[in-house]
Design a protein around this nucleic acid. Sequence first.
RNA 1: GCUCGAGUGGUGGAAUUGGUAGACACGUUGGACUUAAAAUCCAAUGGACAUUAGUCCGUACGGGUUCAAGUCCCGUCUCGAGUACCA
Length: 1025
Amino acid sequence: MQYNFNEIEAKWQKFWAENQTFKAENNSDKEKFYVLDMFPYPSGAGLHVGHPLGYIASDIYARYKRHKGFNVLHPMGYDSFGLPAEQYAIQTGQHPAITTETNINRYREQLDKIGFSFDWSREVRTSNPKYYKWTQWVFIQLFNSWYNKDSDKAEDIESLIAQFEKEGNSKVNAVCDDDIVEFSAADWKGFSNTRQQEILLQYRLTYLAETEVNWCPGLGTVLANDEIVNGVSERGGHPVVRKKMTQWSMRITAYAQRLLDGLDKIDWPQPLKDSQTNWIGRSEGASVTFKTMVSDTVGKSYPIEVFTTRPDTIFGVSFMTLAPEHELVPQITTPEQKAEVEAYIEATAKRSERDRMADVKTISGAFTGAYAEHPFTKEPIPVWIGDYVLAGYGTGAVMSVPCGDQRDYDFAKHFNIPIPNIFEGVDISEEAFSDKGSAVIANSDFLNGLPYKKAVKRVIFELEKMGQGKGKINYRLRDAVFSRQRYWGEPFPVYYVDGLPQMIDTEHLPITLPEVEKYLPTETGEPPLGNATVWAWDTKENKVVSNDLIDHKTIFPLELNTMPGWAGSSQYFNRYMDPGNDEAIFSQEAINYWQDVDLYIGGSEHATGHLLYSRFWQKFMFDKGFVPKDEFAKKLINQGMITGTSAFIYVYDGGFVSNDADSERDSTKNLILSFGVLQLVRENINLLHDLWKKAPKSDFEICEEYSLKIDDLNLIKRLYQTLLQAAERLGYISIAWFRDFIPIRPIHADVSLVNSSDELNIEGLRNWKPEFKNAIFVGENGSIIDGENDRYIVGREVEKMSKSKYNVVSPDEICEEYGADSLRLYEMFLGPLEQSKPWNTAGITGTHGFLKKMWRLYFDENGAKFNDAEPTKDNLKTLHKTIKKVEEDIENFSFNTSVSTFMICVNELSTQKCTSRAILEPLAILVSPYAPHIAEELWSQLGHSESIATAPFPVFDESHLVESSKQYPISFNGKMRFMLELPLDLDKDGIEAAVMAHEKTQKQLEGRTPKKVIVVPGKIVNIVG
RNA sequence: GCUCGAGUGGUGGAAUUGGUAGACACGUUGGACUUAAAAUCCAAUGGACAUUAGUCCGUACGGGUUCAAGUCCCGUCUCGAGUACCA
């Protein structure tokens, strides 16, 4: 009986679908286990073999946990809002919903072929109104909440209003906007409704405010910080500029500390935690207020607040620097300096963010003419502006301490500002001294002689006493912009009355995306939803109505922005627990049973986006009592990327078709060199040059001079003749090369034209690229390829998988040719899950061969081989060794080593000619998480009618592995010389005696007496001397 | 620049608390079977030397600790990822 994988796999995929084998119940006596993959975005290109890597790993774990008796939740769905579908819509007019649907269907088809144990009854799509109803719902919850620093959690906005009514806002300790005006209870009651709403917006966890945003003209939308890479948009690489716009924002900064603290509680990869830590960017220091001095031309003193992590260096301040955008700049600038300052501001505003970042070296700035008073010395300090100070960080102003900060130092040097030294015994003539560990403060009044930590404490104490500063913790994390000027995203459940946002009642959700004619911004520059004609909210009827009806009395305009990509993915893991629920985002029964994700697998690129925002929303949901855990995923693994192995052919570019060397090459006349031949040419370019110049030398002389073997020389000579011959055939007038240089152009060849030995299918290539129709190929043996006389070997290079590099391999082809089980095993076999590794289809014959070999343990030409024979000792030893190792490996996510273990097991059982059912049944279960189709087939052939998924995992029995003796490696001075089998119950002295008595030992020692004999029972013997 | 991670055969990668370096595969070479191919099976395969026995070298490089180092410590180099004027 043959291993017919295509038939077997189709059969079991159908069986699982029809029997809903992997449907998870929300009510179960079994312990729960939640295994989740990161939401895929269904792109038009479909899956390549790199994508399923994490899915296969999580599937193995999920299946393993089922065998171990857990109730496993293993869902899959689609993050289906997003830019590519919208860009496609702009180009073609096709509705993104249609594109998305097509792409999802293709994804599903591909996923099904790999045999995943997903519970498809729980599938969600972020673009489905039944799903985004709950995204809108969460948004409303955030709107109706504020962050109380005293209770350190989010609370209902009603509790804030109650406080305002009772005692105003003076005692409110909230995370809120900076420009809060103090008011009393009486004031509050006297405010108009509009004023009250404006004030509340300053406290809400999602709020509308004019903020400086990253505007991307190329995409026509704003972007979050994590969507920008190196100053350009992550998608499309378009330039990004700073711009002030009224946008929805999320007060994620309220959670900065808790997001940091929470990292200690979760088992996530350290690099990922590090990047979140850096992103949040906590720094401890002090906020200090400097007051500007009143002068003849500026008649008022302004307070300049700065943040510093080195308040201990305050006596080293010799100037202050404000960001050019700082709001005080126009007010403090003196008339004499006005022109210069304004010119500087204009110049910096013109420079894009990218230029500013790329050009860190150039120092620029301008003096405002203003002076601030030093809080302690009362000395005047000049106030400068400079673009090395960022408006968005801290207060947008720094106290510059050139002796202790390199940037301040460079700025001072450049503008000839004094650099006072306040460090004891440190030379600062060349560079600033920023090491706080060894710093001892000098020239600093009451700080003299103090080390860093003590000085900081003292300064803060003094500043607080004067009321000019206090200890402060600053975060780099900014509030997250939540508006996108796009069509294909969740609409906000928001309408506007007198320009103020109003939430639509949750009972009327979802507010579904309106139809539009065009997906581009409107002519007046409004987002695409501005094109919608039915996009107004009727507060009487509670429905979306035509824009014509807007009267600003009962019918109001709706929000035109949509939500960003991360909105839909920030609670999806909880929605999977109860995805069909229309009454609530999930039932309390469901969330209380499933709690949180036990294992989350996905790429590390989501470190500061999805994974941070999701943690933020989860903490919010926790504060509001909707979820029982404030971290949504206990354990997270980043799977590595699978790269492609590109194939190259090497086109010789030195032949000219006419005497006019500058004339265009004839692109149809190509000479293509095999990889080995190219290497040979490169290594012996001087020799070839000599041959070309016909330098008369004997073979012996050449071999001497170039240290070549005669065979290699003959090959080179043959090659040289071949090249001349090829040049003649192609009509080149010469073969042109120079010492040290050979004109070669590497070109990507489609990897499907290359076999497992890197041999190129030349006919295939000629058909694929017409310009090579008549090309001459020179093979590995240095001959012009004409039929079977020589082979063309491609060069190989590891690159990212991409269409343009012709190195994309799709899982479908692999499943077709080798089967899903071979693919699953091979993806795991490639290497550790977390590591990135290159794909090379050639290797799959290894795992495919293994499956065939395993099949032959159960069947031969005559059918079933298995029987009820008693297993031998060796059989049991092999099996239990395998159980132990595989179980350990799965628990440690070391899937590559368990594939090896299976191979060893099958190799051993084959040698042992094992046919015992008592061995072969448990073996099928062991393999089933990895290769579920073949396992199901074997299981049913063994006579079982239920799916193998229900079978309990084999239990490891130590007794089968107990040995009575061990092959001891016997080393001399640390070098292993021979093996010696000795009983394991022999003690140290016994071992030493046995080893010393051995003839090989005596031979090694050659009569010497060893200085020392190290015996580690059960491990090794080392004889020294 | 800073932070983190990694360097082992021709290739992907194994190697438990320091204890036989190169498991398991791919590829390569040779052989068996076959009209032939595929498939399958057998053998060899880190490098150098040696007829055999065997010897020497070898886990990026240079030191060190140890009876013993891929593994621990110090320094250097290279590559990858993240981040980037963060006061």
